[in-house]
Design a protein around this nucleic acid. Sequence first.
DNA 1: CTGAAAGCGCTTACAG
DNA 2: CTGAAAGCGCTTACAG
Lengths: 340, 340
Amino acid sequence: MAEVGAPVTMSDVARAAGVSTATVSRVVNGRYGVSADTVAQVRSAIERLGYESSLVATSLRRSRTNVLGLVTRTFQSYTAEVLKGVMKALSGSGFDLIIYANSDLYETYAEGWEQRHLNRLSGTLTDGCIVVTPWGEVRSSTPVVVIDPVRGSTAPSVTADNRVGATSAVEHLLGLGHRRIGFIAGRSSLESAWSREEGYREALAAAGVPVDPTLIGRGDFNPESAAPLARALLDRPDRPTAIFAASDGMALKVLQVAKELGVSVPDDLSVVGFDNIPESAFAEPGLTTVDQSMYRLGYEAARMLKSLVTGEWEGQRQMLLPTSLVVRGSTTPPGAAARA
Amino acid sequence: MAEVGAPVTMSDVARAAGVSTATVSRVVNGRYGVSADTVAQVRSAIERLGYESSLVATSLRRSRTNVLGLVTRTFQSYTAEVLKGVMKALSGSGFDLIIYANSDLYETYAEGWEQRHLNRLSGTLTDGCIVVTPWGEVRSSTPVVVIDPVRGSTAPSVTADNRVGATSAVEHLLGLGHRRIGFIAGRSSLESAWSREEGYREALAAAGVPVDPTLIGRGDFNPESAAPLARALLDRPDRPTAIFAASDGMALKVLQVAKELGVSVPDDLSVVGFDNIPESAFAEPGLTTVDQSMYRLGYEAARMLKSLVTGEWEGQRQMLLPTSLVVRGSTTPPGAAARA
DNA sequence: CTGAAAGCGCTTACAG
DNA sequence: CTGAAAGCGCTTACAG
C-alpha cells in the first residue's frame, strides 16, 4: 500500500483540467450542458488523479444522498442474515448502505441508543434508516423502518408473526401430549416478547389447558436471565414436562441448566426455543425452535424503506412475516424415560 | 414514530440558548473557557430540542473524526464474526465504526471496488479503514489494515496462517493413509489461496509423496467454480481417495458432486475444507476443515488500525494468526468401503 | 468568556 | 456552455 499524501479533491481535478469545480461537479454527476471536449478533459483528469467524490461533502450539500442507514446495537449471526437481505433488496437500486455502530453504546440496552445514532445520520448522511430491535419508539426527520419494534409502536415496521409462531410451538408440545408446559418470557417492552407470550396463552386456551402462572418466568431475551428461571422451574417437585423459551438463547440456557441438574432432554424434559439461530442446530440435542427468516425481515425492511424514501410505498406500513416450526431432537412425548 | 420536520441543527440550539454557534460547539465538545451559566443554558437547550451533532458536518470540518471504516464486498456469516471482533477491540476506545457497502459493487469481484469505497470515506468520514478481502492492492491517505490481502501486498494486514493450516489438513489425510490427495485451489491473486497451495505441496513433499499436477484443480473460492473440477477428479478411473479444497464453500460443493456421482463420503472419498463456516458443521457428513478465527482477525485488525491512527503502533505490521484443524465425519482411512 | 468569519468539499441557482 | 458565489452544519483560529 502507498499511504498517499492528501486525498484528491474536486479542486485538484478542476485545476488539472483547467476548469471550475462547478464544471467538474457537472461531469461527475452526468448533468447536461457541458461540451464534449470539456467532458473529455475532465474525465481524463479524474482518471489520472484517481478522483472519487467525498461521500461526506456530497451528503452535506445534497438533500438526497442515495445512502440508506442501518443502526444496530449488536452484531450477532442474525445481523449478517438481515444485512444479506437488505443488500439483496438494495442491489441495483442506486442506494448504498451505511451501517453505524457506536463503540460505547454497543451491546448496551442504554436508553435511547437508537435515537442518538439516528440523529447523527439522518438529514445529512442518509435518506432514511433501518433500526434493528430498538429500545423505544424512534423519531426522525427522514423515513425509518423498524425491524422488531417496541410494543405499540406506530412506526413503519417489519416483524415476524410471533404470535402464530409461538402458537405453533406450543401446539407441537401439546400434540406430543405435554400438559404442564413452562414458559420463559422475553423483554416485555418488545412487541415480539408480548406476542410470543400471547401465542403461548392462546394455544393452551384453545386446547383447554389452564394457564398456571407459576409456570411462567420473566426473562429479558438474554441467555443469562433464563438460568435462575429454569432452575426454579426444574427444582419444583411438580416440574413441567416441557419448557418453551421465547428465544433460542434462553432455550439453550435451559438445556444447560437441565444438564447441570441431571434432568435429561428430551427424555425428562422437552425444550422449544424461538429464532432458529445457527447454534440451535449444533446443540446436543438439536433444539426444536420457531424459525423467523432474518434474511426476509432485512429484505422487506429495505424494500419498504426504499419506497418510503422515493415516496412510492403503497402497501401497509406494518408488515407481519410468516414463521415455521423446525423440529429437532429436544422434543419428545412426556414420560419417555419412564417408558424406556 | 413521529416523522419530525427538519433535523435540529446547532443554529437552532444557539438561537434557543441565545448564544453563537461557536459557543454551542464549545459546550458540545467540552472545551474550556465557557462560563458555568452559559454551559447550563446551552445544555438545557440541547436537552429540550434533542440535539445531536451531525456526523457528516463534524467529519467534514475536523481532521480527526474518531470514526473508523470497514469496507466489504459481501455479508457472509463470517462477516458477522469479523464485526464482533472489531467492535470488541473498539469498545471503550472512543472510535465508532462505519461500514460502507455500495449496492452496485456488492458481491462482485469488480476491479478496484475496495479502492472506490476507500476514496469515498477516507480523508473526510473516517480516520482509517479495515478492508476485507480486497481485489488488489489499496492506496489511501489514511491508515488501512487489510484482512486477507492479495499476494505480495505491503499494506498492514492480518491473515490466518494459511500455509500451516493447509499443511495440518494434508497431514491429517496422510496420517489416515491417503496418498492420492486431490487439491482444489482458490483465487490465485489472494495470498491465502497461494499459501494454502504451498501448504498442500509442502506436506506432500515432507511425506515423500510426489505432487501429481493432474490432481490439482484451479478454482476461485466460489463454490460454483469447484463443481466441474470435482467432477473431473471423480470421473477418472484412478480418482483420488481424498480431496482437499481451499475453502469450505468449495469443499461443500465437492460433497454435493460426490453424492450426484454416487461416490460415498467418507467411505469412497475423504474431503477436507478450509475456513470452518457454520454450514460445514451442518453438512452430512460433517466437514473436516481448518478453522480460522474470523473474530480474532477482526479483533486484531481493529486493534492495529486504532493504534496506527493514533500513531502508537509498535508491533509488526503484517500479522499471522494461528489456525486449528477440526475433524468431523468427512474424513476416514482410504478403502473403508472395501473393508466394511 | 464570547462572537464574527473563514473554510472543510461539494452542488446549485444565478449570471453571463 | 461555463464560472463566481452562496451555503449544507459544523469547528477553530482570531479579535475583542
